[in-house]
């Protein structure tokens, strides 16, 4: 079947079987491999993308279900050459090591800070507690979220 999505602001369309996952569709059919798959069963959050600005796990969703919707992937977070405040904060605070979990954190945190521009520490912890990272021990990820909210304010 033909599936059309608005990905990072651009209409994109490709053929895919009805059973194809959104994660595989983005990575394979549309050639956007920035969205990563860490578990393919909805637990790690690495595959998180924004569907109409809300975070969803693209490994738990069929591409067909997303037909006609707006999808933002990690590739669409930076504007032109400039990193988004969330991306910049992760870089400044050493909030990533291997970078495999990072796209999922970036999309999750982007949506979170939209809704909670001045989060408390507890809200931050809660916001990132659905994403697994095996490298960082989360210390600098939490710092990065705080820093991103500062950057967004200024």
């Amino acid at each position: 079947m033909r599936i059309t999505l608005h990905v990072n602001g651009v209409p994109r369309s490709a053929e895919a079987e009805p059973r194809v996952l959104l994660s595989d569709f983005l990575r394979g059919e549309l050639g956007l491999p920035g969205t990563h798959v860490g578990c393919e069963h909805g637990v790690c959050g690495a595959c998180t993308v924004l569907l109409d600005d809300r975070p969803v796990r693209s490994c738990l969703m069929l591409a067909a279900t997303a037909d006609g919707h707006h999808v933002t992937t990690v590739e669409g977070l930076a504007e032109e050459a400039a990193l988004s405040p969330v991306q910049q904060a992760f870089g400044e605070c050493h909030g990533l090591q291997c970078g495999f979990c990072t796209p999922g954190f970036l999309t999750t945190v982007t949506a979170f800070l939209e809704a909670h521009p001045k989060p408390t520490d507890e809200e931050i912890l809660d916001a990132v507690s659905g994403n697994l990272c095996r490298c960082t021990g989360y210390q600098n990820i939490v710092k990065a979220v705080r820093r991103a909210s500062e950057l967004m304010e200024s």
Binding site: G34, H36, G91, L96, G99, F100, T102
Partner: peptide, 20 residues
């Protein structure tokens, strides 16, 4: 301001992992 030379590509979805 980024901590590492690796970070720009990893933050923008331009890292290239095996399955990519």
């Amino acid at each position: 301001a980024l901590s590492r030379k690796e970070d720009h590509r990893l933050l923008t979805g331009r890292g290239r992992f095996l399955d990519d």
